[in-house]
Write a protein that binds this DNA or RNA. Structure first.
Length: 139
DNA sequence: GCCAACGTTGGC
DNA sequence: GCCAACGTTGGC
C-alpha cells in the first residue's frame, strides 16, 4: 500500500466538499500535469492520501482513500488525462500546516516542501506516520 | 498583488 | 532536439 498527497484550493474543492460526497467519493479531475497523472496511474484501491488545502489554510486537513482506479477524466475529451476517485476517510483532529512541515526534521524533505507545485505527490511511510502523529491521529 | 519556480508550447 | 516565450501555481 502506498501513500499520497492531494492538493486543492479550498475555494474550488475543499475538504468539506470531499466529505459531502461521502462513501461514493468523487473523481479527482482537472489534473493537467503529467507527473501528477502518472502518480495517479500508479495508485491502487485502498491507497491512502492526505488532503491538503493550498493557498488558503496551507495545511493538511484530512485523509482520503483511493476508491476507483485511474480512468478517463470526465471533464475533458483529451485522452491524455485521467484520474482516480477519492473518498473521505476522516479529518485530522489537528491540521498539520506547511509551516510545521518545513521545520520538522522528517517532513522538511517532503515533496510538498521541495516541489510545492506538484498537485499529486507521493508520501513516504515515515512521513505518513509522522503527520498522523502530529495530526493527533491514532492509526 | 507580486513573483519565483516550474511546466508546456512552438518556432527553428 | 533546443530553447525562448509564455502560462500557471502557490507561497508570501
Amino acid at each position: 500500500m502506498k501513500y499520497w498527497l492531494f492538493k486543492s484550493e479550498p475555494d474550488t474543492w475543499g475538504w468539506a466538499d470531499q466529505l459531502a460526497k461521502g462513501d461514493a467519493g468523487e473523481e479527482w479531475h482537472g489534473v493537467r500535469n503529467y507527473q501528477a497523472r502518472n502518480n495517479m496511474r500508479q495508485m491502487k484501491l485502498g491507497d491512502l492520501g492526505f488532503f491538503y488545502h493550498s493557498n488558503q489554510g496551507k495545511e493538511i486537513v484530512g485523509i482520503v482513500e483511493v476508491c476507483a482506479l485511474s480512468h478517463p477524466d470526465s471533464t475533458t475529451t483529451d485522452a491524455r488525462w485521467d484520474c482516480v476517485d477519492l473518498r473521505a476517510v476522516r479529518p485530522l483532529r489537528r491540521p498539520v500546516t506547511l509551516e510545521t512541515c518545513k521545520t520538522d526534521e522528517i517532513l522538511r524533505e517532503m515533496v510538498l516542501v521541495k516541489n510545492s507545485r506538484l498537485s499529486v505527490q507521493p508520501v513516504s511511510e515515515e512521513e505518513w506516520n509522522r503527520i498522523c502523529a502530529l495530526g493527533d491521529l491514532s492509526a
